[in-house]
Each structure stands twice: as structure tokens, then as C-alpha cells.
Nucleic acid binder design. Structure first.
Lengths: 142, 142
DNA sequence: CTCCATGCAAACACTTTGCATCAAG
DNA sequence: CTTGATGCAAAGTGTTTGCATGGAG
């Protein structure tokens, strides 16, 4: 789990304002396992007695996106999800068709070989990829 | 390129009505390389002097989806794309960041090994996956 | 003639924008 | 005090629904 304190320090020392919403959102994003949606963030904030307008949440997410604190994840649900961006932690997701649970899965550099092949064979320089696995988790297969 | 004639025959002999819109949409989907959006379909139809309401296009796409003629593709653009579903043609996409072009890339069963590892190590049965490569095509790298 | 297909308007879900107000530093 | 953060209402975008009409078989 990435430390929210570190991130907040970094933002502060870069001259960004430290507001209640910003602090709370970074903390929630750090604690939450798996990517979280704007709506879920609002619920989480409310649980901390912080009633925040959706506009503010979306704007803060854009801010964190721009600062490369979070990254956007699209799991084909018709909405975006966000998770802390940690360059050293390359992972993908497993989405259960039944219970809709989302687990992360470490992947290392399994696609590096494929991506260098793509450059050779297709003259296309891969900068990033999205890879999500859809299926059934153990509990839902019983 | 999948033959639209075949698909239309199949649909007809299964007792489905053959309308101008259905015929045209299947043809466009077959001819178009790479996944196409609802809006692009409407433009394509207009080029054939067929002015079709978006509702009709969405409904026809759902119909083709249900009949497993097409599949949905999400390239993180905020809208869905559709392409002819051909079980024997397992491919993914390369999306250029600059020109937004979409190329298909054959992939065979490169992820089978990873997916059986996932079942073993994470007790998660992968049924399908999404894999898209984002980067720069040859022309845009010059 | 019987249904499925279609168009239109309106609703929907998620996200963004404009503008006035608020609060961090 | 200054500027970035916030709330609210409205607009935007992609998609879906309800309902009446139209056309394939």
C-alpha cells in the first residue's frame, strides 16, 4: 500500500494547497484495494463526514491524474475507475463476472517480449497497454 | 475479411428479417478494418444514402451482439466500438496516441500460459481478456 | 395481417463547464 | 489579499426506453 503521507508531502512541497478533500481523497485512494470510481469515492468521503460535490471529486481526480498520482482504469463498466499510480508496481485486474469483484494481479514484464515483437513486425512503439482478465473467482465458481 | 453474405444468409435462415439497415450495417462492419463506433456507423450509412436514427443503430448493434455476430471493444475513448466476432481470429489492437488510428494485431494463444497460472495461483478462472496496446505508429514517430 | 424494425422525443448515466463564492497560504 | 478549491446548475456525450408508425414476410 502506497503511503498517503508521502504523496501529500510531495504535493505540498510542490506548492499545491492542502485541503480536506484532497487529503481525504488521497488517503482513500491509497487504502482502497483495486481501482475506485468517482461515485464510490463520494460514498467513502461521506463515511468520513465529508459531503463533497461530484464536480469537486472529478476535478480533484483530474488534478491527481495530471500530477501522475493516480491512473485511470477502464473495466468496461461505463464509468472510469482510478487507482494510485506506482511505476514500480505493474499489475492488471481480474474482474469476476458474477460478483463484480476486482482483484489486482502482479504481472512483471511478461509482455515486454511481445511488445518488442510489435515494434519489429508492425512498426508500432508500445508505450503502455491495458490488460484485464474477465472470468469467475473461486467463490463464484462453487 | 469476413463475408457479409454468409452472415446475412445465416441470419435470414434463422428466421430474422432482412432490412436495408441490417444488410448495410453488417456490410459496413465486415468491410471496416478495426472496430467502429455507433457514430461512425451512422456516418457510413449516410454515405450510402441511408439516414438511420441512432436508436436504430444501437438496437441493431444489440441485436448483432446477442446473435454473437459482433463483439464490443472498449478502447478507453468514452464510447464503445464494435467489430465482427470471429472466434478463429483472436486479435488485439494497437491505438496510436497521436493520430488515433487503430490497427489489429493477431496474437494466437500467447496468454494461455498466463491464464492457467492465474487459475493455479489466484483461483480465478479466466474466460476472456481485454488487451490493447497504446503507443505511436510508424508514421507518427517520424 | 402480424410482428419485428424504425423514428422521435425524452430519459439516463456519467462527466464536464460556467460562474459565483469560499478558504488556504 | 490572491489564487486555487468548491458548490450548484446547466450543458455535454454516449446510450437506452416508451410509444406510435412503418415495412418485411
Amino acid at each position: 500500500m502506497t503511503e498517503s503521507k508521502e504523496i501529500l508531502e510531495k504535493l505540498k512541497s510542490a506548492g499545491n494547497r492542502m485541503t480536506q478533500v484532497r487529503r481525504a481523497m488521497v488517503e482513500i485512494l491509497c487504502r482502497h484495494k483495486g481501482p475506485i470510481s468517482a461515485a464510490e469515492l463520494i460514498t467513502s468521503l461521506k463515511r468520513r463526514s465529508l459531503t463533497v460535490n461530484k464536480t469537486t471529486v472529478y476535478r480533484e481526480l483530474h488534478f491527481l491524474l495530471e500530477k501522475r498520482i493516480v491512473r485511470e482504469v477502464d473495466l468496461l463498466e461505463g464509468m472510469k475507475r482510478y487507482e494510485i499510480l506506482d511505476e514500480s508496481d505493474h499489475h492488471h485486474h481480474m474482474i469476476c463476472l458474477k460478483c463484480r469483484s476486482i482483484q489486482c494481479i502482479e504481472m512483471g514484464h511478461d509482455l515486454d517480449e511481445i511488445e518488442s515483437q510489435i515494434l519489429k513486425n508492425h512498426d508500432f512503439k508500445v508505450l503502455s497497454h491495458t490488460l484485464e482478465f474477465v472470468g469467475l473467482c473461486g467463490r463464484c465458481r462453487d
